[in-house]
Design a protein around this nucleic acid. Structure first.
Lengths: 328, 328
DNA sequence: TATACTTTTGCATACGTATGCAAAAAAGGA
DNA sequence: TCCTTTTTTGCATACGTATGCAAAAGTATA
């Protein structure tokens, strides 16, 4: 079943013009008279002609494709991110080559996929990248941008929330309310987001003489639920729990409910991300809003900047706290 | 900043062979002596050579790309689907060109994106497709498969759960438990999934002389929450609620909690999909398991079948009920 | 060593497009 | 009408790869 791709040549013949002219009709800004343009467009319509992006990419070295690699597909935050990325990139004429990586670190093989297709940039959310790969990409002049990650040892741009600052604000809030028994539940401990949120939170409280209990989790609901439940059962009763993200906080919240601890009266809970579920009545989780749209805009901006010889930029956005029913 | 793509020609020169030979080294099954293969691979490694998928696709008419179009990115069920699709397709050497469509119906423009890149097949989850587009794709000999949708009026394959049968089983369960005041909450009413689940459920119960109350919702948590809450406030007290999907059921569940109705003692709740959240302790939702892996396998199977001249196949898989704490 | 046979290689061409250059056509000016 | 200027068009070529065909190289047989 051969795929009968109809080419510009065929359109040209039927329209009594050259292939070049057909090409120009489909090239914005090229010089074609109105009369021939109309004629060509009509024939193209009849034949269902579609310019071939592969051939075009081959010659212009512009593929209009962007590689997007994601890891933690379980976290609703990233679904939102995915949606916004594809929406905005489409609006700019880019197509998205999507890779979902199961491994902690993006693999060479996955990057090769991107390279083979000559993507014009790579966006990595929520996954690690080896410096070897980064330098290979740099050598190939393909910009790569870490989204919601921030690795200073890597020579690439990054866009993230100012996690240290945000977590500091939350710490300040918790401190000023007078809470003393405070818990932080980490995400995956090798991620910059978790590290920064921990640092911002703990450092502020330490400066006030408060020691924070750390529960080492992994961004999953299940782990966070279990850790919190165990903590309560061990006899410790926290005033305040801050989770490294919303899913983490929800796990803690459900564990508290399970142990019949009233929220926010006995314990308050705060998350990070403001995923859709945080607003569900049953949860109504107080959380830090990451300005996703803004973060995506910044990322695309860096992508199209096309000045990858200068030093890597680490863009930080602010966001804000939103008070719901798990704080008072 | 020109992108200096290194070509097979450059590798050839350095390795003292022809470009053809380099090509053959990277073409599985081609005839190359072990000696030259090693030499070429070494040079290729040195130069960071990467075969160009665009050029290859141009000549072989095989792009190894599959178009994936999704709509309801808010539903966790589809995130799982997305993950499994990309994982399995990657394993088969396919790349995924991803489109997230906001519109109810996939737009011409979005399909054009796929066509321009010569994708080898298109998977549409959860969105509608005009028959005009389908016939255009058929004309271009690009197989298109509806995932979790089933439109008999369209000339294309589809893979879905046997929704009528599944909903019938659930109706049987509800009937045999002796419930009389039964509610079905729809999804988007113009989707085949919602229609079929409603049909299977209602038809069985009608045959037993039971009239089902229908709440017309749209697959969102919020709408379902509100409708259920209103229903209760109007004075109606259901024995059993079946939601067109899990998100719908969770909305109903939270509304019941909000109205202080005990689940499952006063009212039981059943969902459909078995998303990860259904297993969370706080919800522990009884639901119908859609065998996602199997559905994805069937889809990819149809995609690679490559016999799109015969009539469209509508593959149905079964799935099974999973009992948790919202039923007794 | 000569012959037949097999494997490996290079040459040439094709895929479908974009684009510099020069020729052709159209438009403007007198 | 003729000449100049501008716009539109076609020709030829390039992008980086795969592949049929024939030449070359290697291997086996007698």
């Amino acid at each position: 079943m051969e795929k009968n791709i109809i080419s510009a040549m065929e359109v040209a013949k039927l329209a009594n013009v050259s292939q070049s002219t057909v090409s120009r009709v489909f090239t914005p800004g090229a010089s074609v008279s109105e009369k021939t343009r109309k004629k060509v467009l009509q024939v193209a319509e009849e034949l269902n002609y579609q310019p071939n992006a592969l051939a075009r990419g081959l010659i212009t070295k512009k593929t209009n494709m962007v590689g997007l690699a994601m890891k933690d597909i379980q976290n609703p935050f990233y679904h939102e991110v995915l949606g916004i990325f594809t929406k905005k990139l489409k609006a700019m004429g880019y197509s998205v080559l999507f890779v979902y990586t199961e491994n902690e670190e993006i693999q060479q093989e996955e990057i090769n996929h991107f390279l083979e297709y000559n993507v014009e940039g790579i966006i990595v959310t929520d996954a690690l990248l080896s410096s070897k790969i980064v330098s290979k990409l740099k050598h190939n002049r393909i910009p790569v941008i870490l989204f919601n990650r921030n690795d200073k040892s890597l020579q690439c741009h990054s866009v993230s929330c100012d996690n240290i600052d945000a977590a500091g604000s939350i710490a300040k809030y918790v401190f000023e309310k007078g809470y003393k028994e405070i818990v932080f539940i980490t995400g995956k401990i090798n991620t910059s987001t978790s590290q920064d949120r921990q640092k911002g939170f703990v450092d502020f409280l330490i400066s006030k003489g408060i020691v924070v209990t750390i529960l080492e989790s992994d961004y999953t609901y299940e782990k966070s639920f279990e850790l919190t439940k165990n903590l309560i059962q061990s006899g410790y009763k926290p005033d305040a729990i801050f989770g490294a993200n919303d899913i983490t906080a929800l796990g803690a919240l459900d564990a508290l409910k399970d142990r019949k601890i009233s929220v926010p009266d006995e314990t308050i809970v705060i998350g990070f991300d403001n995923i859709k579920m945080a607003a569900w009545p049953n949860y109504s989780l107080s959380t830090w809003v990451q300005p996703v749209e803004e973060m995506v805009d910044e990322t695309i901006n860096l992508l199209t900047l096309n000045s990858n010889d200068d030093e890597p930029k680490a863009v930080k956005v602010k966001g804000h706290f939103i008070h719901r029913k798990t704080t008072k």
